[in-house]
Amino acid sequence: MSDNSPDTDDTGDFESGLPGFLGIFDVFISKVEAVMLAAGVLLMALNTCVNVVARYVFQEGMFYTGEVNRILIILITFAGIGYAARHGRHIRMSAIFDALPLMGRKILMIIIALFTSVVMFFLCYYSYEYIVTLAGRGRILPALGFEVWMIYVWAPVGFAITGIQYLLTAIKNFRTREVYLSTGVRDGYADTESEV
Protein backbone atom coordinates (compact mmCIF):
# COMPACT_ATOMS: atom_id res chain seq x y z
CA MET A 1 0.00 0.00 0.00
CA SER A 2 1.11 3.52 -0.61
CA ASP A 3 1.57 6.06 2.11
CA ASN A 4 -1.20 8.52 2.89
CA SER A 5 0.70 11.75 2.36
CA PRO A 6 -0.83 14.32 0.00
CA ASP A 7 0.23 14.33 -3.63
CA THR A 8 2.51 17.31 -4.22
CA ASP A 9 4.60 18.51 -7.11
CA ASP A 10 8.31 19.40 -6.95
CA THR A 11 7.55 22.82 -5.43
CA GLY A 12 5.51 21.34 -2.57
CA ASP A 13 2.20 22.66 -3.94
CA PHE A 14 -0.91 20.50 -3.54
CA GLU A 15 -1.93 18.61 -6.70
CA SER A 16 -5.57 17.63 -6.81
CA GLY A 17 -5.45 14.71 -9.17
CA LEU A 18 -8.89 15.69 -10.50
CA PRO A 19 -9.18 16.56 -14.19
CA GLY A 20 -10.04 19.93 -15.71
CA PHE A 21 -12.16 22.46 -13.85
CA LEU A 22 -12.58 20.23 -10.77
CA GLY A 23 -8.81 20.00 -10.35
CA ILE A 24 -8.33 23.76 -10.77
CA PHE A 25 -11.16 24.42 -8.29
CA ASP A 26 -9.69 21.92 -5.79
CA VAL A 27 -6.22 23.50 -5.96
CA PHE A 28 -7.73 27.01 -5.62
CA ILE A 29 -9.63 25.99 -2.46
CA SER A 30 -6.47 24.40 -1.02
CA LYS A 31 -4.53 27.64 -1.48
CA VAL A 32 -7.29 29.73 0.12
CA GLU A 33 -7.41 27.34 3.09
CA ALA A 34 -3.63 27.41 3.51
CA VAL A 35 -3.53 31.22 3.49
CA MET A 36 -6.44 31.47 5.94
CA LEU A 37 -4.89 28.98 8.36
CA ALA A 38 -1.39 30.44 8.20
CA ALA A 39 -2.64 34.03 8.55
CA GLY A 40 -5.01 33.08 11.36
CA VAL A 41 -2.36 31.29 13.42
CA LEU A 42 0.25 34.01 12.86
CA LEU A 43 -2.17 36.83 13.68
CA MET A 44 -3.35 35.06 16.84
CA ALA A 45 0.24 34.54 17.99
CA LEU A 46 1.15 38.15 17.21
CA ASN A 47 -1.97 39.48 18.91
CA THR A 48 -1.30 37.44 22.05
CA CYS A 49 2.42 38.34 22.19
CA VAL A 50 1.76 42.05 21.72
CA ASN A 51 -0.87 41.92 24.47
CA VAL A 52 1.55 40.19 26.87
CA VAL A 53 4.26 42.78 26.16
CA ALA A 54 1.76 45.62 26.58
CA ARG A 55 0.51 44.17 29.87
CA TYR A 56 3.96 43.71 31.41
CA VAL A 57 5.77 46.71 29.94
CA PHE A 58 3.00 49.32 30.00
CA GLN A 59 0.91 47.72 32.80
CA GLU A 60 -2.16 47.78 30.56
CA GLY A 61 -3.21 45.10 28.10
CA MET A 62 -5.11 45.65 24.90
CA PHE A 63 -8.83 45.49 25.64
CA TYR A 64 -9.75 43.87 22.32
CA THR A 65 -7.27 40.96 22.37
CA GLY A 66 -9.78 38.39 23.64
CA GLU A 67 -12.31 39.22 20.95
CA VAL A 68 -9.72 39.18 18.17
CA ASN A 69 -8.46 35.78 19.32
CA ARG A 70 -12.05 34.49 19.49
CA ILE A 71 -12.59 35.54 15.87
CA LEU A 72 -9.31 33.93 14.80
CA ILE A 73 -10.09 30.67 16.63
CA ILE A 74 -13.42 30.45 14.78
CA LEU A 75 -11.63 31.17 11.48
CA ILE A 76 -8.92 28.56 12.13
CA THR A 77 -11.42 25.92 13.26
CA PHE A 78 -13.71 26.19 10.26
CA ALA A 79 -10.94 26.67 7.69
CA GLY A 80 -9.15 23.75 9.35
CA ILE A 81 -11.94 21.22 8.85
CA GLY A 82 -11.70 21.62 5.07
CA TYR A 83 -7.90 21.47 5.24
CA ALA A 84 -8.02 18.28 7.32
CA ALA A 85 -10.48 16.69 4.88
CA ARG A 86 -8.28 17.68 1.92
CA HIS A 87 -5.22 16.02 3.48
CA GLY A 88 -7.04 12.95 4.84
CA ARG A 89 -6.29 13.95 8.45
CA HIS A 90 -9.69 13.51 10.11
CA ILE A 91 -9.91 10.86 12.81
CA ARG A 92 -11.28 7.65 11.41
CA MET A 93 -12.11 4.24 12.84
CA SER A 94 -10.75 1.94 10.19
CA ALA A 95 -10.58 -1.61 11.61
CA ILE A 96 -13.44 -2.89 9.43
CA PHE A 97 -12.44 -0.67 6.51
CA ASP A 98 -8.85 -1.97 6.53
CA ALA A 99 -10.02 -5.61 6.63
CA LEU A 100 -12.07 -5.23 3.42
CA PRO A 101 -10.71 -6.07 -0.04
CA LEU A 102 -9.91 -3.23 -2.41
CA MET A 103 -13.37 -3.04 -4.02
CA GLY A 104 -15.07 -3.14 -0.60
CA ARG A 105 -12.87 -0.30 0.68
CA LYS A 106 -13.57 1.69 -2.48
CA ILE A 107 -17.36 1.29 -2.18
CA LEU A 108 -17.27 2.07 1.54
CA MET A 109 -15.11 5.17 0.95
CA ILE A 110 -17.55 6.45 -1.66
CA ILE A 111 -20.46 5.94 0.78
CA ILE A 112 -18.52 7.61 3.62
CA ALA A 113 -17.49 10.57 1.47
CA LEU A 114 -21.01 11.13 0.10
CA PHE A 115 -22.63 10.79 3.55
CA THR A 116 -20.09 13.14 5.12
CA SER A 117 -20.62 15.62 2.29
CA VAL A 118 -24.38 15.61 2.92
CA VAL A 119 -23.81 16.11 6.67
CA MET A 120 -21.45 19.03 5.99
CA PHE A 121 -23.98 20.72 3.68
CA PHE A 122 -26.70 20.12 6.29
CA LEU A 123 -24.51 21.80 8.94
CA CYS A 124 -23.74 24.60 6.47
CA TYR A 125 -27.47 25.28 6.09
CA TYR A 126 -28.12 25.28 9.85
CA SER A 127 -25.09 27.43 10.62
CA TYR A 128 -26.38 29.91 8.03
CA GLU A 129 -29.78 29.87 9.78
CA TYR A 130 -27.99 30.52 13.09
CA ILE A 131 -26.20 33.52 11.59
CA VAL A 132 -29.52 34.91 10.32
CA THR A 133 -30.94 34.54 13.83
CA LEU A 134 -27.93 36.32 15.35
CA ALA A 135 -28.17 39.12 12.79
CA GLY A 136 -31.81 39.63 13.74
CA ARG A 137 -30.86 40.15 17.38
CA GLY A 138 -28.47 42.99 16.58
CA ARG A 139 -25.89 42.11 19.26
CA ILE A 140 -22.47 43.73 18.94
CA LEU A 141 -19.03 42.86 20.25
CA PRO A 142 -18.30 45.22 23.18
CA ALA A 143 -14.64 45.92 22.38
CA LEU A 144 -14.58 45.89 18.59
CA GLY A 145 -18.06 47.32 18.09
CA PHE A 146 -19.28 45.26 15.14
CA GLU A 147 -22.13 42.78 15.03
CA VAL A 148 -21.61 39.32 16.54
CA TRP A 149 -23.01 37.44 13.52
CA MET A 150 -20.02 38.57 11.41
CA ILE A 151 -17.56 36.43 13.35
CA TYR A 152 -19.60 33.27 12.66
CA VAL A 153 -19.60 33.67 8.87
CA TRP A 154 -16.68 31.24 8.73
CA ALA A 155 -18.86 28.37 10.02
CA PRO A 156 -21.04 27.93 6.90
CA VAL A 157 -18.05 28.71 4.67
CA GLY A 158 -15.98 26.00 6.38
CA PHE A 159 -18.81 23.46 6.27
CA ALA A 160 -19.43 24.23 2.58
CA ILE A 161 -15.75 23.84 1.68
CA THR A 162 -15.56 20.57 3.62
CA GLY A 163 -18.75 19.31 1.96
CA ILE A 164 -17.28 20.14 -1.45
CA GLN A 165 -14.04 18.40 -0.50
CA TYR A 166 -15.83 15.18 0.47
CA LEU A 167 -17.95 15.35 -2.70
CA LEU A 168 -14.74 15.68 -4.75
CA THR A 169 -13.30 12.71 -2.81
CA ALA A 170 -16.30 10.58 -3.83
CA ILE A 171 -15.83 11.68 -7.46
CA LYS A 172 -12.11 10.83 -7.26
CA ASN A 173 -12.92 7.34 -5.96
CA PHE A 174 -15.45 6.82 -8.78
CA ARG A 175 -12.80 7.75 -11.38
CA THR A 176 -9.75 5.82 -10.15
CA ARG A 177 -8.78 2.23 -9.46
CA GLU A 178 -7.17 3.01 -6.10
CA VAL A 179 -8.90 4.09 -2.89
CA TYR A 180 -8.47 7.75 -1.95
CA LEU A 181 -9.10 9.31 1.48
CA SER A 182 -9.25 12.71 -0.23
CA THR A 183 -8.60 13.97 -3.72
CA GLY A 184 -4.85 13.90 -3.20
CA VAL A 185 -4.33 11.27 -0.47
CA ARG A 186 -4.29 7.56 -1.29
CA ASP A 187 -5.42 5.02 1.29
CA GLY A 188 -2.62 3.28 3.15
CA TYR A 189 -0.13 3.75 5.89
CA ALA A 190 3.34 5.21 5.76
CA ASP A 191 6.15 3.09 7.16
CA THR A 192 7.23 5.32 10.03
CA GLU A 193 9.68 2.90 11.61
CA SER A 194 13.29 3.45 10.65
CA GLU A 195 15.62 0.55 10.13
CA VAL A 196 18.24 0.02 12.81
Rank of each mutant, 00 (worst) to 15 (best):
S2K: 10
D7N: 15
T8G: 00
D9Y: 14
D9V: 11
D9L: 14
D10T: 14
D10M: 11
G12K: 12
G12R: 10
G12F: 11
D13W: 07
E15K: 15
G20M: 14
L22V: 12
I24H: 10
I24C: 15
F28H: 08
F28Q: 10
I29Y: 00
S30D: 14
V32I: 15
E33G: 13
E33A: 13
A34R: 13
V35W: 15
V41L: 15
M44N: 08
L46G: 10
N47S: 09
T48W: 08
T48R: 11
C49P: 04
A54Q: 11
R55E: 08
Y56A: 01
Y56R: 12
V57W: 09
F58Y: 05
Q59P: 01
Q59I: 04
E60H: 09
E60R: 06
G61L: 06
G61V: 05
M62E: 04
M62C: 09
F63G: 12
F63H: 14
T65H: 01
T65F: 07
T65E: 07
E67A: 10
E67R: 11
N69K: 08
I71Y: 09
I76L: 12
T77F: 07
A79V: 02
A79S: 14
A79R: 08
G80W: 02
G80S: 04
G82N: 00
Y83T: 07
A85G: 05
A85L: 06
R86L: 07
H87K: 14
R89A: 13
R92P: 04
I96M: 02
F97I: 01
F97D: 06
F97W: 04
L100W: 11
P101Y: 03
L102G: 06
G104M: 13
G104R: 15
K106A: 00
K106Q: 08
I110H: 03
I112T: 05
A113E: 04
F115K: 02
T116V: 04
S117C: 02
V118R: 06
V119R: 01
F121G: 05
C124V: 00
C124W: 00
Y125K: 02
Y125S: 03
Y128L: 03
E129A: 07
Y130C: 02
Y130V: 03
T133N: 10
T133D: 13
G136Y: 07
G138I: 12
R139N: 07
L141G: 11
L144S: 07
W149G: 02
I151Q: 02
Y152K: 05
Y152P: 04
V153E: 04
P156H: 03
V157I: 14
G158D: 05
G158L: 05
F159S: 00
A160S: 08
G163Y: 00
Y166M: 09
Y166G: 01
L167T: 15
L167R: 10
L167D: 05
L168P: 03
A170Q: 09
A170P: 11
K172G: 07
K172E: 09
N173D: 11
N173H: 05
F174Y: 13
R175D: 14
E178S: 10
Y180W: 14
Y180K: 05
L181V: 07
S182L: 00
T183H: 10
G184C: 11
G184H: 04
V185W: 03
V185I: 06
R186G: 12
D187L: 12
D187S: 10
D187E: 12
Y189I: 09
Y189H: 08
A190T: 12
D191A: 11
D191C: 09
T192M: 10
E193K: 12
S194F: 13
S194P: 06
S194H: 09
E195S: 15
V196K: 14
V196I: 09
